[in-house]
């Protein structure tokens, strides 16, 4: 490693670290601006360190978005419910694809994978019509139920279960008289907790960040999720920079915490499918 400290390497290190700073800058400013008043933010040069106006900004934010805490709760509710349902349904389907032999299995699995190629916007208009028909407009279940079993999750679970659980184990349980669902519940589920962690993270982040879904489903400000509520701040008139930054910080913070704790597993999980495919 010592031999590498020539000028070319040093400048490459500098560029990579400089790039990392550029990647982090917007987050830094978001948190710093969240603690400054609008006049501070609009000064030259801008504030680079934390101020003491965070609570004022939150008060401003709640003035503009009276349901903000409710919106935050809605975001958590939708994200957690989507995650729990995905963990259950995806692992069940992944278990079937990994451990059973059945007719048309290959075709059915190819069908699951091909749905990943369908762009999200294609379903945007018809989903509104369906939700209107079901009377689910403005209801969180309109966001949760359609997303309850993602193709990506089925694929991940199948890969993991296929490599982590020996078929002999299931056969032994079958001989001992354990039912098919019992085998899944008592044997498969306890063995795949690492995969649950990864899939749970990915699903939670995706549901938390979902914008297009709530945008067309939720009409009532009280039912907004956080991204949708924040978006309504950037309308016409005076833009409350401090309040926007404070709201964005609150929206991003849960993800940042999750990311700091789990970044390695998250990155590995997200790329595992890509490398194998």
């Amino acid at each position: 490693m010592k031999a590498k400290l020539n000028p070319a390497y040093l400048s490459a290190y500098a560029i990579v670290l400089g790039g990392a700073v550029i990647m982090l800058m917007p987050f830094w400013f978001m948190f710093v601006f969240a603690t400054h008043s609008d006049t501070d933010i609009l000064s030259v040069p801008p504030p680079m360190w934390f101020g003491d106006a965070f609570l004022d900004n939150m008060r401003l934010l709640l003035g503009r978005l009276p349901y903000f805490w409710h919106n935050l709760g809605m975001s958590f509710y939708v994200a957690i419910a989507t995650t729990v349902l995905n963990l259950f349904f995806c692992s069940l389907a992944g278990y079937a694809f990994a451990m059973f032999e059945f007719k048309y299995k290959e075709y059915l699995f190819a069908g699951v994978l091909s749905t990943m190629l369908l762009p999200a916007f294609l379903g945007m208009i018809p989903s509104v019509l369906i939700m209107t028909g079901l009377g689910w407009m403005n209801e969180p279940r309109a966001l949760i139920v359609p997303a309850a079993c993602g193709a990506m999750g089925v694929f991940m679970m199948r890969q993991f279960i296929g490599s982590a659980i020996p078929k002999e184990l299931l056969e032994a349980a079958r001989i001992d008289g354990c039912g098919e669902f019992g085998i899944y519940w008592r044997i498969v589920v306890p063995l795949i907790t690492p995969a649950f962690g990864t899939l749970g993270l990915i699903t939670f982040i995706g549901a938390w960040n979902n914008f297009m879904g709530p945008l067309v489903i939720m009409n009532d400000m009280q039912m907004y999720t956080v991204p949708l509520a924040l978006r309504s701040l950037s309308g016409t008139g005076q833009v409350p920079w401090g309040a926007i930054s404070a709201g964005s910080a609150v929206a991003v913070l849960p993800l940042l915490v999750l990311f700091v704790i789990t970044s390695r597993r998250l990155i590995e999980g997200l790329t595992a499918g890509a490398v194998k495919a």
Partner: peptide, 26 residues
Amino acid sequence: RNAVVGFYFLPFITSSVAIALVFTTL
């Protein structure tokens, strides 16, 4: 390596709405 990768990867997992709002400020 993992720390630096984490920095570059961070924008990918954050809410695009929050990000876009911060950038309109910047």
